[in-house]
């Protein structure tokens, strides 16, 4: 259940990219908040600024202006090192999964923990548990190329959960899988949200999937044009 503690608070966030000398306004002043335990989907046409927003929340980039508070801290004021530390607390699932090809499923999950400084024996055990939770018990020693798209997707989710993140960010997690797999992934996310209390922000194109979240935020041309709870 969503609580009253906000994990993400965006106040008039703007992001402008420079294409040569031409400024491209990807976000034109976004106001938005996510409470701990919430499950928010972000819906919008291509180029509306969804990925840009998610990258900012994931501390992969800084806003050009405005304030973006993650767990109460304005990321605009953080140093490179502090941003890295913040990322340890955030689980990010990329559109193209972004697993490291030479590492097995288990090693990919372990890598996230090893970056956080977890010892070998602990992370080995935890990685196997995480992979079991996403239903990949018998695939732990497979490399990404030896897994289906949906399986890779689940490895990416297991990796994102490895360091017990405050919240999980997913950029079009079902963009590359069939509708059956998409449904599976979604029920996994719902389970994580309801049973383990993980806050989730998910970008999607699919309106039906978006409806399954507790709340849907609609974006258009760098602005939020609707923010509504989904009756369930």
């Amino acid at each position: 259940m969503p609580t009253n503690t906000p994990v993400v608070e965006a106040i008039n966030v703007k992001k402008t990219y420079m294409l040569g000398k031409v400024p491209v306004e990807a976000l034109r002043g976004v106001n938005f908040h996510v409470a701990a335990g919430d499950f928010v989907s972000i819906l919008g046409p291509s180029g509306s600024g969804k990925s840009t927003m998610l990258n900012l929340i994931g501390a992969l980039d800084k806003p050009t202006s405005g304030q973006l508070l993650i767990d109460g801290v304005d990321i605009g004021t953080l140093s490179d090192n502090q941003l890295s530390e913040l990322r340890l607390k955030i689980g990010f699932v990329f559109q193209f999964f972004n697993l490291i090809p030479r590492l097995t499923a288990r090693d990919n999950v372990e890598l996230a923990m090893s970056i956080a400084g977890v010892s070998k024996s602990q992370r080995r055990k935890h990685a196997v548990e995480l992979l079991e939770n996403v239903g990949l018990k018998d695939r732990i020693n497979h490399k990404p190329a030896e897994l289906s798209g949906g399986q890779q997707q689940r490895v990416a989710i297991a990796r994102a959960l490895a360091n017990n993140p405050k919240f999980l960010l997913l950029d079009e997690p079902t963009g590359n899988v069939d509708s059956k797999t998409a449904a599976e992934v979604l029920s996994l996310l719902k389970k994580l949200n309801t049973e383990d209390g993980v806050s989730i922000i998910m970008v999607t194109h699919d309106e039906k999937l978006a409806k399954q979240a507790r709340r849907t935020v609609k974006m258009f041309d760098g602005e939020i044009c609707a923010d509504e709870a989904n009756g369930q």
Binding site: G58, L60, D80, N81, S84, E85, L86, R87, L88, I90, F92, F94, N98, L99, I100, L111, A112, I115, A116, R159, N163
Partner: peptide, 16 residues
């Protein structure tokens, strides 16, 4: 390049 992006997104510091 992409691998480095992943490592950094997972929270790896520049120094590392």
């Amino acid at each position: 390049t992409r691998e480095i992006g992943i490592l950094k997104a997972l929270g790896m510091k520049s120094r590392t």
